[in-house]
Structure formats: structure tokens, C-alpha cells
Simulated scan of single mutants.
Amino acid sequence: VTINEIEGNRKEYKKGDKVTLKADHMAGMKNSPATIVEIQKGPAYMVNYQPTNGGKQVTNHKWVAEDEIEKR
């Protein structure tokens, strides 16, 4: 999730912080407790992609970090 999808107004978080999610792009996510396990600074993207295993097209997958994108 992005910082905008966490309850509260904190600007900085650290690994191990306990938070409540505002995100609702997956079932059961909204208002769920979570623990920060990794922090990545930089842009995050929504992407559409076709899985290489032949699965169904994925639309508006949230969130992908820049280093997870393979440019072609």
C-alpha cells in the first residue's frame, strides 16, 4: 500500500510500525491492522498486465514499485 492508504497523518513510518489500512482494493483490507515489513521510497504505479502463465488479464493492479517493472 502507499502512505495515502494508511490511517493517520504521519509523514514517516519505520519497519515494525503497527498501522490500520484505509486501502480497499482487496477484499477484507479496509480497516485491517497491518505491520510495516518493508519501506520503499519512490513512485508506485497501477499497471495492467497479461500473466505469462496464461491467466486472465489483470487491470489496475495496485501498487508496483519502479524496480519491479521490466521495460520493453
Score class of each variant (00 low, 15 high):
2 T>W: 02
3 I>K: 08
4 N>K: 14
6 I>Y: 02
7 E>H: 08
7 E>W: 06
9 N>Y: 06
10 R>K: 15
11 K>I: 10
11 K>W: 00
13 Y>W: 09
14 K>D: 05
17 D>G: 04
17 D>F: 04
18 K>W: 01
18 K>T: 10
19 V>I: 15
20 T>K: 15
20 T>R: 14
21 L>S: 10
21 L>Q: 10
21 L>N: 04
21 L>V: 07
22 K>Q: 11
22 K>A: 09
23 A>R: 03
25 H>V: 07
26 M>W: 10
26 M>I: 12
26 M>A: 15
28 G>Y: 07
28 G>D: 12
28 G>P: 01
29 M>W: 07
30 K>N: 14
31 N>K: 13
31 N>F: 00
33 P>N: 15
34 A>I: 03
36 I>H: 01
38 E>H: 07
39 I>Y: 00
39 I>K: 00
40 Q>M: 08
41 K>E: 12
42 G>L: 05
42 G>S: 03
43 P>E: 15
43 P>Q: 14
43 P>K: 14
43 P>R: 14
44 A>E: 05
45 Y>G: 04
45 Y>E: 07
47 V>N: 01
47 V>L: 01
47 V>G: 02
49 Y>R: 09
49 Y>W: 12
50 Q>S: 09
51 P>K: 10
53 N>E: 08
54 G>Y: 07
55 G>A: 06
56 K>M: 12
56 K>D: 13
58 V>Y: 00
58 V>A: 11
58 V>N: 10
59 T>S: 10
60 N>M: 14
61 H>P: 00
61 H>D: 14
62 K>V: 03
62 K>C: 06
62 K>W: 01
63 W>N: 08
63 W>P: 01
64 V>Q: 02
64 V>I: 14
65 A>N: 06
66 E>G: 06
66 E>V: 02
66 E>Y: 00
67 D>L: 02
67 D>N: 11
69 I>T: 05
70 E>R: 10
71 K>H: 05
72 R>V: 12
72 R>W: 10
